[in-house]
Design a protein around this nucleic acid. Structure first.
Length: 357
DNA sequence: AAATCGGGGCG
DNA sequence: CGCCCAGATTT
């Protein structure tokens, strides 16, 4: 170690690491072995998604794509299919792009520098820090939702952590608290503290290893931190979903545009109410023999609610209507292998009972 | 710096 | 229903 004594004893890290030994999570699937590919994959999956949800996806994904090269060589459809149900599908497309970029530009290896990592698709400053610290023990900070909450309380930092000015202060604190070694454990410990002790709703300050130096705890203002996100009005949109079956019982699906909701996924054709209000007609609906109106479906996105009206019908003549552009007929057996939005998968599953009769 | 992007789970 | 969750990217 350095011969120079630290001006500031690294009490935060010391206490945190001691707590981690006894109370941290040591059995997460991406910790054994703790290597860059697994750390990266877990970090991307854990963006906006909770640990318990991620674990089964992580296992399936790793089984199908055991390394960067396998992932890079796979069709993006396979990646999206395994991602189906996790949400935020841009993550899956970025993951695939990143794997190909790693193979094409970095010899299939993760670059060591933070800047090079953060330049890769889907990897920002925090994820770059997590990969570097956890894989190689680099002295790099992270700032995810858990850490933002812990630090906002520990230093009683006002303002919504999403605000750039607040975020900048939090990064300064995050880097100032970094220990000189054991960075992989330290990073995991900080996230574990936020996930199990310093939780959003009911923090267990009595069990916290750093409560003695926590400004919010000392001033009994823990509930004030972090400040809540400013609320926005939630929009409401309506659309019709066309469940077109042909004489062979196949379902018409189309690949959605890469941007927008359910980007890149396979989905029955949809009609916005705006689009429909014009001529009131559609080639599929015109060709339908009999249209059955299914129960309406509500789906909540982060920033708007979608009300879906499923319309089910059979086309006796399937020629000319489909197999053009991005559309294709899919047998019900093939559905499992395709990346479908979770609510669509649910809807079709409930439909199978009636289809088979 | 602010806006955009656009799932799922939980109490 | 509201909020949270191991954010990144674009304007």
């Amino acid at each position: 170690m350095s011969a120079v004594a630290a001006d500031r004893p690294p009490e935060f890290a010391t206490r945190l690491l001691a707590w981690f030994e006894l109370n941290g999570r040591h059995d997460l699937p991406w910790q054994h072995p703790r290597e860059p590919y697994r750390v990266w994959l877990s970090e991307i999956m854990l963006q906006q998604t909770q640990v318990a949800t991620v674990i089964p996806y992580f296992r399936r994904f790793l089984e199908r794509f055991p390394d960067v090269a396998t992932l890079a060589a796979a069709p993006v459809d396979d990646v999206l299919a395994l991602w189906s149900g996790l949400g935020y599908y841009a993550r899956a497309r970025n993951l695939h792009r990143c794997a190909r970029q790693l193979v094409d530009e970095h010899g299939g290896q993760f670059p060591r520098s933070l800047d090079a990592l953060a330049a890769l698709p889907g990897i920002g400053r925090s994820t770059a820090g997590a990969i570097a610290a956890q894989s190689w023990g680099a002295r790099a900070a992270i700032l995810d939702g858990n850490v933002r909450r812990v630090l906002a309380r520990h230093r009683a930092i006002d303002g919504w952590p999403g605000a750039p000015a607040v975020q900048r202060r939090l990064w300064v604190v995050a880097e100032a608290l970094l220990p000189d070694d054991r960075l992989a454990d330290y990073t995991q410990a900080l996230m574990d503290l936020g996930a199990t002790i310093c939780t959003a709703r009911r923090p267990d300050c009595a069990a916290c290893p750093v409560s003695a130096e926590c400004i919010a705890r000392i001033t009994d203002t823990v509930a004030r931190y972090p400040a809540a996100r400013p609320r926005k009005p939630r929009a409401r949109r309506r659309a019709r979903m066309l469940l077109a079956f042909n004489a062979r019982g196949e379902l018409l699906l189309e690949r959605r545009a890469p941007v927008g909701i359910w980007g890149g996924l396979w989905c029955p054709p949809m009609l916005d109410d705006d689009a429909l209000s014009g001529d009131g007609g559609h080639a599929l609906l015109d060709a339908a023999d009999r249209i059955e109106t299914l129960p309406q479906l509500h789906h909540a996105f982060t920033h708007f609610d979608l009300e879906l009206q499923p319309l089910r019908f059979t086309l006796s003549r399937s020629g000319g209507v489909a197999e053009s552009g991005r559309q294709r007929w899919v047998s019900l057996d093939e559905l499992a292998a395709l990346g479908l939005p979770a609510p669509v998968r649910k809807l079709l599953a409930s439909l199978d009972l009636t289809v088979s009769t």
